[in-house]
Design a protein around this nucleic acid. Sequence first.
DNA 1: GTAGGACCTCAACTTCGCTCGAGGTCAAGG
DNA 2: CCTTGACCTCGAGCGAAGTTGAGGTCCTAC
Lengths: 144, 144
Amino acid sequence: MATRAGIAHSALRFYETEGLVHSERTAGNQRRYHRSELRRIAFIRVAQRVGLSLDEIREALATLPATRAPTEKEWARLSATWRPRLDAQIAVLEGLRDQLDSCIGCGCLSFRVCRLYNPGDIAATHGPGPRYLLGDPRQGEAVD
Amino acid sequence: MATRAGIAHSALRFYETEGLVHSERTAGNQRRYHRSELRRIAFIRVAQRVGLSLDEIREALATLPATRAPTEKEWARLSATWRPRLDAQIAVLEGLRDQLDSCIGCGCLSFRVCRLYNPGDIAATHGPGPRYLLGDPRQGEAVD
DNA sequence: GTAGGACCTCAACTTCGCTCGAGGTCAAGG
DNA sequence: CCTTGACCTCGAGCGAAGTTGAGGTCCTAC
């Protein structure tokens, strides 16, 4: 029933196995969720939109008090930490766009001269794409 | 040897099986790459940074002439198509940031009132996170 | 001519965030 | 009492973008 948070029941169960949300059980073994779990789920979904992994979200949620429902202030504190992250992502994309603008005229895309092809700072993006792989510390590569 | 494009040999072979790059073979079955493949690889990596999937990159590369090496102009044409995409991504993140700013004060994160929690337009992000799943046409959900 | 390294293939494995299905249980209405 | 539908568990699978490893071949230098 709590799937009316707008997420699939399978996702909800998955979050539970991951320790992101919690539930009690009825006598008949059915899950009952505390009202405050709704807000946790909202937090999770928004954090995902901002680009956090479930691991990071778990860490963030772990800083909340275990014995009582978090206050608005505590939620605000957590979500405030997203701001610099968003700013950084935006900055990366804008840098990329500006580089792109300066490169489109030349169509260069050469390993030797084009700064668009730049393995060095890819780790900084944390954006779309294979970030774990590209983020590998791969140093001292020749760049043709 | 062509792995000196700065990518792992495994990735190169993977791209070849995916039809993104091409090679000839020597008598001893070893791969030899044409010089122009370097630029294709550069294109692929930059396109990934912009957020394209390999499928999309394959489509884009398919519009290039098959019988001769592409001109600078053709490369420029392709990369110019990234611009609106980058702009859109930036716009999404900026919208998110602005929403976040207006929400941090209240710490709301409520399904009922907070616009940050907005399943409807998630499909538009194409950013990080589970975009295939979130992109599902899921309509008419109650949003408590 | 032989040792070493660089290449080859192919299948299996990784991570993340879930979804799907089979097979079983629970609760409420008629 | 029985049916129906909503819940339960557990394991398997997906999709993207590769990586890893075993086992085999090739080429170059000494």
